[in-house]
Design a protein around this nucleic acid. Structure first.
Length: 473
RNA sequence: GGUCCCAUCGUCUAGCCUGGCCUAGGACGGAGCCCUCUCAAGGCUCAGACACGGGUUCAAAUCCCGUUGGGACCA
């Protein structure tokens, strides 16, 4: 059996969006599963809309989600000669002809056909003219088959049949010498040896136009697979109106690439009831027969849950690594430089089940850098009161008696004090929490102390006591 | 307008090909309870769907036909 070759072929007209990533992902998964080749091709023939920045954004996005390609990136603009050569080949072999119909004429004739109730396709006028070499402006048209059927055995949709009578003679080379989309795609897929063309199902009806071109050119026709679209909450095509659609926006919002990939693959593909898949598992389990045929609505809530899941269960070291750039972005560059990666990982463990994104994690982690904390006014007012100051002093003196910080011993000592005082745990815990973190909500107290270390714990306790004594009763 | 695609909880989906195990399962989100030093996480429970109508069959979410509703493409 020949080696599988698939491709992802985005147009560089903006940022790499969610839908594109999913298309790329399914291709990539299939390639890796089959030990095949994954090709990246940039379809930049629309020069008015294509930009180099977009190409960079696509490459950056692909790298971030970890979809590596084996060949490319190829750019269609570098292959113009190829398209012209193959277009001329079609002309020479009698599969294409010059069309000198003017745009206005075509428009007029289409309208006329419409009013007569006929289909508005090209009427084939120049097909019978056999123009050897055009004098002025002329486009090259492909002689599409006029009878019979084109049958696609789609990897996802199954058997789809089109009557050839509905396909008209499409232009393959414009009068300005540029190839049309449907033609350049065929030439590229053929020349690159693509065995499986997997793309969005908005291309399904393009397929019966493309297959005859493969055949006329004498190339093998690849298998096709058409993935359903991704929709927004209002069931219209996913766009900016539905929130962030650029993959890089999700990096900036604190999403993990693995969570992104896992969410996206489950949007349209399933393996029984399983929700969480490692990359390796995906590669092992992926197959086309469990890809959904219908469009899916993008659900930010589930993505958020998935991200939280990856933050909670992922390796703390890896999460810490992904967190560092966001900490720097938040102005904690110096503080981050001053601590060990090991300690950062410890911080991650401390807060990981309390956050859903890395951006939230930055907020949660802030109180653990530096000597002092910033008190949230409300929390300090409520819990650091003169009434609790004596209690805090007692705790402080007990802690000071310990030469070093041992979590179980400090916890024991704390609970003993609570018992002796005959108070509820929370009466002492909340003021201490505010003293140590500045906030009314935090991870477990003793874990916090452990991360802060003896000196900072005592220091902050003292500062908190000062604040409590100064507070108005 | 023509051609094509699609249709299970609010959402993602399992089941459909190979009818019976489906009083339709899981996940997100929602509600409630438990746990608890706060906030979370976690555990348990509840509400919630086979678009509709015909057939075929002893039996249909599952097969067939139609209707409706969405969508894509061509203009």
């Amino acid at each position: 059996m020949t080696q599988v070759r698939v491709r992802f072929a985005p147009s560089p007209t903006g940022f790499l969006h969610i839908g594109g990533v999913r298309t790329a992902l399914f291709n990539w998964l299939f390639a890796r599963r089959q030990r095949g080749v994954f090709i990246l091709r940039i379809e930049d023939t629309d020069q008015s809309r294509s930009t180099d920045e977009s190409i960079q954004a696509i490459i950056e996005g692909m790298k971030w989600v970890g979809l590596d390609w084996d060949e490319g990136p190829f750019r269609q603009t570098e292959r113009m000669e190829l398209y012209r050569r193959y277009a001329m080949k079609l002309f020479e072999t009698g599969h294409a002809y010059w069309c000198v119909c003017k745009a206005e004429e075509l428009e007029a004739r289409r309208k006329e056909a419409e009013t007569k109730g006929l289909s508005p396709r090209y009427d084939g006028r120049c097909r019978h003219l056999t123009i050897a070499r055009p004098a002025g402006d002329a486009a090259l048209r492909f002689k599409a088959p006029q009878e019979g059927q084109t049958v696609i055995d789609d990897l996802i949709k199954g058997k789809v049949v089109f009557d050839n009578t509905v396909v008209d003679d499409l232009i393959i080379l414009r009068s300005n010498g540029y190839p049309t989309y449907n033609f350049s795609v065929v030439v590229d897929d053929a020349l690159m040896g693509v065995t499986h063309v997997v793309r969005g199902d908005d291309h399904l009806t393009n397929t019966p136009r493309q297959i005859p071109i493969f055949e006329a050119l004498g190339f093998a026709v690849p298998r096709f697979g058409h993935l359903p679209m991704i929709l927004g909450a209002d069931k219209t095509r996913l766009s900016k109106r539905h929130g962030a659609t650029s993959i890089m926006a999700y990096r900036d919002m604190g999403y993990l690439p693995d969570a992104m990939v896992n969410y996206l693959v489950r949007l349209g593909w399933s393996h029984g009831d399983q929700e969480i898949f490692s990359r390796q598992e995906l590669i092992e389990k992926f197959s086309w027969d469990h890809v959904q045929k219908s469009a899916a609505i993008f659900n930010p809530d589930k993505l958020l849950w998935m991200n939280a899941e990856y933050i909670r269960t992922g390796s703390p070291h890896q999460v810490a690594q992904a967190l560092v750039p966001l900490l720097k972005h938040a102005g904690l560059g110096k503080e981050v430089e001053a601590v060990s990666h090991e300690w950062l990982a410890q911080l991650v463990v401390l807060v990981k089940e309390r956050v859903k994104t890395l951006v939230e994690m930055v907020e949660w982690v802030k109180p653990y850098f530096g000597q002092d904390v910033e008190f949230e006014a409300e929390a300090a007012k409520k819990f650091l009161t003169p009434a609790v100051a004596p209690l805090l002093r007692k705790l402080l003196s007990r802690f000071e008696a310990f030469p070093s910080l041992s979590k179980p011993r400090w916890e024991e000592s704390f609970k003993k004090l609570v018992e002796e005082e005959g108070i509820k745990m929370g009466v002492l815990a909340q003021p201490v929490r505010v003293a140590l973190t500045g906030r009314a909500a935090s991870p477990g107290l003793f874990e916090v102390m452990e991360v802060l270390g003896r000196e900072r714990t005592l220091h902050r306790l003292r500062t908190g006591i000062g604040r409590a004594e100064a507070g108005q009763a």
